[in-house]
Design a protein around this nucleic acid. Structure first.
Lengths: 218, 218
DNA sequence: ACCTGAACACCGTTCAAGT
DNA sequence: ACCTGAACACCGTTCAAGT
């Protein structure tokens, strides 16, 4: 709890973020981070208990960038869209860290804040208890799932590939074994992630209205 | 390509699966796997190029357990439900491997097969090109997202926690900062994953019908 | 109280030598 | 052609010694 520490938690967070941005997740190690900060590896342990906590700091850094209006409007649908879009956009700005966001538990306020706001918007839509839980799981599953899939799903290009290579990958498979995959691989080349996200979310919101009998807009 | 190898690929796969099942993903290493097989670490490299390929073998092992009727029925909705439920159930049987399934790209037939079947069902619902792509992204994002979230989402219990501890976690936060999270944490205690999955999927299918103007059942 | 080098117990992988 | 021990270049983390 002393105040004369060599670095601030924010400095550590920023250095870790910069390191991963430059060298990828594989480049993240206690030793590398210490090197970037001009100190010894063991110094990092004055700020985090272990590697898991260091990774938690990275998840927090991404979620801190989630920006939305911050107060409930009269339109719960618009609020759900705004908050989830902000989460998705923040994650997409840091593709290298998405696997950590998806995979590591976080109780950071930066993470729970947007989550609570999303839940509040769904609640204002008329949901509670079990149905609120299911709506939350469906929406947030979609958000994290689609963010991760853009990165490592079957339609995602690997480091060595571009969109044409992805198409070629499915074309080269024996006897056109995967005609539908080939079709959407082609569609994916002309597709915008933004449009995929917003349309997907609209599908879910419409589904919530119909399935849970919420007052509909049309 | 020789046939007088010490082990079969299947043996390797089974041994790796058993190892992870027993010791978790952290216990998976070339040396540990070799030990389990009664050989030296470098022997593993006669079967896989590197660790990434070994992890791919694990993803394949999980996806090989995906079982569905295998042929298109007259009801595309039922087919979508059956195939995605089979994928979700297979993943849930191997919670330790879910992070790999979600995070690692795979071109294994065991992975692409169910994916193609899902796409075919959506196509029979009346979708193509861009809309087929969006429907696929929405459905499969949901499936992987909800599977991972059950494991490491804010409502998931960590290794040391049970359902009561999760509730206590949100109750102990200052001034009831997260009342909605607390509400669904309580609901989660009484909730069945099965019900959450099927209801969430129903929401998405209903949304697909309305948003894309597919012929509806009611 | 905070910092940090040395050391320990691990990793994945290359290389060279075995059969 | 396949197997495998030794060695290399890393890891996270403990411990003990510094200020």
């Amino acid at each position: 709890m002393s105040r004369n520490q060599k670095f601030s938690r924010e400095q550590l967070q920023a250095a870790a973020l910069a390191l991963v941005e430059k060298e990828g997740l594989e480049g993240l190690s206690m030793r590398n981070l210490a090197l970037a900060l001009g100190t010894g590896a063991m110094t990092i342990y004055n700020y985090v208990a272990d590697r898991a906590e260091l990774e938690g700091l990275l998840v927090e850094a991404v979620m801190q960038e989630v920006r939305w209006s911050g107060k409930p409007s009269k339109d719960w649908r618009a609020d759900v869209k705004e908050i989830t879009h902000a989460m998705w956009a923040a994650a997409r700005k840091h593709p290298q860290i998405i696997p950590l966001v998806v995979t590591r538990r976080s109780s950071a306020a930066a993470f729970l804040g947007p989550t609570e706001a999303l839940l509040d918007a769904l609640k204002r839509g008329g949901l509670k208890d079990q149905n609120l839980l299911i709506a939350f799981r469906t929406v947030s599953g979609f958000v994290t799932g689609i963010a991760q899939a853009e990165l490592t799903g079957p339609l995602a290009a690997s480091a060595q590939e571009d969109a044409k290579d992805v198409i070629a990958r499915f074309e080269s498979l024996p006897r056109e074994k995967y005609p539908r995959l080939l079709e959407i691989a082609k569609a994916a080349g002309k597709s915008k992630p933004e449009k995929e996200f917003t349309t997907g979310l609209n599908i879910i919101i419409t589904g919530l209205e119909k399935e849970f009998g919420l007052e509909s807009r049309d």
